[in-house]
Structure formats: C-alpha cells, structure tokens
Design a binder for these strands. Structure first.
Lengths: 213, 213
DNA sequence: TCGACTTGTAATCATTCAATTACAACCTAA
DNA sequence: TTAGGTTGTAATTGAATGATTACAAGTCGA
C-alpha cells in the first residue's frame, strides 16, 4: 500500500515569470524576516520558493536587490494598511485622532498574519550600518513617522508611544517569545500586556513547525 | 620632517590573557552590535581589538561562544545598572514605583555610552530563530522583565510601556537615525520625542567616523 | 513544424570566513 | 641559563555561498 510519492519534482512547475516573482518575494520575506539580511542565503530562499538557487539570483540580480524589494513591499503593505484606516469614516462623538489610535494599532497587529512583513521590516531597521539597506530603512521608517504625524494628526509624543509599542511587538516576535507562552508565566503575562486581544493571532503563527536550524 | 610612524606593529603588544580577553569582548560588543551575529566576522573583531583573527578564535573557541559571552556581559551590565537604581533611597513624598520609573529610564539611556551594550542586546533579541543564541536571548529578556515586575514593583502594563520605549530607542539607534538629525526634520523631532534630554548623548556617539562598509 | 523566446536547472567558480596547525617570540621560575 | 608555560602570528584548510555559464525543456506564433 505504499503510494508513489511525487513529492519533489526535479524541475519545478513552469509558471509565468511575474507569478514566480511573487512566490520568490513571499518566500524571501519569510526567510529574511527570520534570519536577517546576512543570516539568510539565496539558497534558503530558493528552497522556500521551491526552485533552484540560480533562478533566484537571475531574477533579482543580487541578494541585496532581492532584500531591497522585500523591504519595499513590506513598507508598501504597511502604508496601504494604515491608509485604509485613515480613509475610514470617524464615528460620531469621537475625535478623529482618538478614533484612529486604536484602529491603527489593530491594523499593525493584523499584519502579523503575513508573518514576513513585520519581521523583514525589523531586520531592515537593525541593518542601519549598511550603506544601501540602511538608507532605505531610514527613509522608510521616517515615511511611517510622517504618515502618523501628518496624515493621522498624531502629536510627536503620541507618535513615539505608538511606534514604541510597535517596536516592542516586533522584538517579542523576533525573540520568538510566543514559543514560551505555555511554559513561562512571565512570557505569558508580557505577551498579554503587549498584544491584548490579538494574542491568539500570534500563538497560531509561531507554533508552526519551522524550528529547524 | 617626516617622522617614523610606528603605527602598525606586526605583532601586538604582549599583555596578560585576562586583560586581552576584556579588550576582545569590548571590541566584539561594538562589532556584533553593529553588524549582528551573522553579519560580523571574527576578523573584524580581531582588527577592532588590534590582534590577529586566530587569536580571537582560540581564546573563545567559536564565534558563537564569543557572541554568547558578549550577550551575557551586556545582560549583566544592564542588570547591575538597574539594581543600582533599585538600591537608591526613595525621596520623601514619592511612591517607590513613581520614583523608579524615570530613574530606570534614565539608567537605560545612559547605557548608550558603552555603545555596544544596547546594540548587542538588540541584535541578540532579533536572532531568536537560532537555537542557542535565541534561547539565551529569551531568558535574558525575561530576566529583565521579572526584574522590573517583581523587584521594581511595576504593573504588567507599565512594564510593557517601559520596555516598549526601550525597544524604540534601540531601534532608532540601530537604524542610525541620529545620522539624519541635521538634515531631516522628522528624524530630529522623533529623536527628541524618544530621547528627551538625553538626546545629546546619542548625537556625540553616532557622529563617530565609523561609516565604512 | 520550426524557430525564437521563456522558464528552469546542473555544474562550476571565486570569495569569504571560521577554524586548525605549526611556529615564533617572550617571560619566568628553578 | 634554560625549560616550560604564555602570548602572539603566518599559513592554510575546508565548507559555505553568491554569482556565472552553459544547457535543457517547454511554449507559442507564423
């Protein structure tokens, strides 16, 4: 009763380059988000995308270029997500900014579902020493700041608070603190305080079987 | 009038191993703090310490081991710094926790002066995927959390706020946002909001001529 | 159906880098 | 002084990895 397992075709299915490109970017987002720019290899990205390493390199030219595209996409998705909230009508009896703060926070946390987005951003932020990636990371971060400050109408102080909690969330995720949720009381308590009602969102994502290496 | 420049002795000065060890750890703290675990090379650490690469490896066995020692030292210094504040007498007319919050915040910011400490911690936090480094980073982070929660008497919510602003500071430093302080209004404003009176501390440190590579 | 284009891989190269080996120079106690 | 331990490097190695080249297999319009 042993079935023939056609699991690993030597040659990947042939699909349009544009679509393959999206697959690679999605895979790269996860891999770079986990290991960082220098910790990730183009071969890991290729395997995650189900194709060969040379194909990854040929499609994006260089590893740096691939990372820059991953970063740009993450910034774009964050921007789109925030602007969608900004476009929502403000309920009666509420100040605009008073309504926006929790909604934007929730929108940010919801981005966890894509997994790679927030982690890739965080990995880029921490690569500030790199002349190319660092420059892009800085300008991207400042774009987010200006969006909150000018479009959402936050005060400087309020914006810093908002970003601070975002960075805490990113750090806890990168730390893989959710892995300790069951065993450690402090981890459980901190995650609850940092994520509130959105906690279950995190627990599903990180219990995934990606614990290798 | 050209003097003989004995700048680079082929062989480093001979000093006791224990002292050399401290030099290497200090150098490694800066290098790892800048480039991260996988982005840094043992040769970069060796050059920063003014010795040869094999000596670095022999003294610490492996690069991983060296990073773990750097991480442990950073955690120790943070712990010592916080406990020094906890030992301070509380001024009359103030609740203990009400007094501690700003003092602990100031103590944290003051750690910037060592430069490597906060950045090495942040680099470790973001290496949560690594089985060895990740485990140590998680337990270290939770130790800090427990210190604030149990020894300082913070509420869970308050602790999260405190850590959030710490992580924002770390991120802004890793991003090298202070490099844009002169040119960019938003960067200036955000740094002011995040660092307050301690802003000048950062501007001195990061204007250092370490922009290569 | 044939020729050009697209989508993919195998093989390989050159570099980087952690780690090892072998050795040199220095110090110090007997 | 000299033997043994300490502090250091030069040279090298082996593995990892980004990138290149050459080629195969599929697709599609004329």
């Amino acid at each position: 009763m042993i079935e023939k397992i056609p699991e690993k075709p030597a040659v990947a299915e042939r699909i349009p380059a544009a679509l393959r490109r999206e697959q690679i970017l999605a895979a790269a987002s996860r891999v770079f988000g986990e290991r960082g720019y220098s910790g990730a290899t183009t071969d890991q990205v290729a395997q995650a995308a189900g194709i060969s390493q040379p194909y990854v390199v040929r499609m994006f030219g260089t590893k740096e270029n691939l990372f820059l595209e991953v970063l740009q996409r993450a910034l774009d998705k964050l921007d789109i997500s925030f602007r969608a909230v900004l476009a929502e009508p403000v309920p009666e009896g509420l100040e605009r900014e008073e309504f926006l703060a929790p909604r934007l926070g929730a929108a940010y946390v919801d981005l966890i579902e894509d997994k790679g987005i927030l982690m890739s951003l965080m990995q880029a932020f921490i690569t500030g020493h790199d002349p190319v990636i660092g420059a892009k990371a800085r300008s991207g971060f400042l774009s987010i700041y200006r969006l909150l400050r000018e479009e959402a109408g936050f005060e400087a102080e309020q914006t810093a608070d908002f970003l601070a909690h975002g960075m805490l969330m990113n750090t806890l995720l990168a730390l893989r603190l959710p892995d300790l949720y069951q065993e450690d009381d402090a981890a459980c308590e901190l995650l609850t305080a940092a994520l509130g009602t959105k906690l279950d969102l995190v627990l599903h994502v990180s219990t995934a079987p990606e614990n290798r290496s």
